[in-house]
Design a protein around this nucleic acid. Structure first.
Lengths: 228, 228
DNA sequence: TTAAAAACAGACCGGTTGTCCTGTTTTGTC
DNA sequence: GACAAAACAGGACAACCGGTCTGTTTTTAA
């Protein structure tokens, strides 16, 4: 652990954007792994090495900080890990499959499941404050709409005619959210693969590539229980 | 609001079981609607009209209280609303359908979505404490096993041969959990029906009763937003 | 150069939190 | 009735929470 030896009282560099980014980084991580209420602003200040005055200058209240995390970080995470890959995929179903497997592989590699950032905050904050709830609901809506739009695009190309776009999107997002919830609680990402396998039975798969060995169950990964 | 005029210093009735039940009632409701960290034991004591000494006598710490809520109330809720109805149904798929629709109807009637008790606590507490995590993981496991066992029973009766019991159970629990998460965030139970509809496409329904009009979308229920 | 605004530092405060502690009353047992 | 244990009452307390406040330094604008 390398800590700057001294703040050197005569030297200071104003870097509002960098400081704001650093605070959002720390808050994003803390809110996801410990939750909103369990993360005190004192903890966040210490973790980011930011003074109370600086924090208050950029985020007047803890709620404002959380709202910024939701709008800028959680929404971006959903965009990055779900919306963009699905839109870039050959089809909606193919994109969904790829994201499920990519997330499962990543979780198994890092050996620890922190859960879905959106769902973590949604459960804790949806009923606590209308502003939180609206912000989170908007992200869910955008997520589902992106998948539904992709299904519609597939259908205009003549594929996957028998699928209801809205229902498929809702089921996909729900299955992923619920699977991540179980994976977090069990600290085992295997349930993601189970859910994906169940999801793919929704239609007689028209593509020849079946991914036979990719769907096999991998069980019991939990390298470091890390009792806190 | 009717408050007993005076505790009547000479009159007291020891009722340990009743007091314990009253505390669990209040804590169960508060933990679900406000969350664990947002519910102070002072609030709980006031809501249950219980003194600090009495509370500490039955539950030495807040964690012990939450653990009791999980073991006795959350597990019972899953048993009551999911396991028992599914086991009593004509088939696993029929039971799943019935529970989805019953919950959706109940939520729409009461006009407010507090979310799934198990998932609410699982998200907030799974990473906070190993004891919490294990207790919650056990409930998830029992939930999934009950559904999988029911599928296996169906298959031994010759029905639903093409379904993988574990995968179907995982997908069902995940879809319900995720749908409740979205329903809570959007304060709209309609997504439950969307997910059920998507779920039922998983297999070419062999039974003639298709429930055509039961699956239609009902949208935008939100009678009382109730800004707190 | 200078004045104003922005960026930051750090102490401070009232309120709340969870828990513990001492004491009193009820209940069960002989 | 005597005694011990259980059941309950209520205050005390240290730690912590989120927010505010005053003051200093850096940057920008004129």
């Amino acid at each position: 652990m390398t800590v700057q030896p001294k703040p050197r009282p005569g030297k200071r560099t104003n870097d509002p954007e960098g400081m704001r980014k650093k605070m959002l980084d720390v808050a994003e991580g803390a809110f996801q792994s410990r939750g909103y209420h369990a993360s005190s602003i004192g903890d966040l200040m210490a973790a980011a090495d930011v003074s109370g005055g600086a924090l208050h200058h950029h985020f007047p209240t803890k709620k404002a900080l959380a709202l910024a995390v939701i709008d800028e970080r959680v929404a971006a995470a959903v965009e990055e890990t779900w919306i963009a890959p699905v839109l870039a995929a050959a089809s909606a179903r193919e994109g969904v499959r790829a994201v499920f497997e990519a997330v499962a592989a990543e979780l198994e590699q890092q050996g620890f499941v922190r859960g879905c950032p959106l769902n973590n905050l949604a459960h804790e904050l949806s009923l606590a404050d209308p502003d939180f709830r609206l912000a989170l609901a908007g992200i869910f809506t955008g997520w589902r709409r992106a998948i539904a739009d992709k299904v519609r695009a597939d259908q205009q190309a003549g594929r996957d005619e028998g699928t209801d776009p809205e229902r498929f999107a809702a089921l996909t997002v729900a299955a992923y959210s619920g699977a991540m919830s179980m994976a977090k609680t069990a600290q085992d990402a295997g349930v993601l693969r189970d859910c994906l396998a169940g999801l793919e039975r929704s239609v007689p798969s028209p593509s020849p590539s079946q991914g036979g060995l990719a769907a096999r169950r991998r069980n019991r990964i939990l390298p470091r229980p890390r009792t806190p």
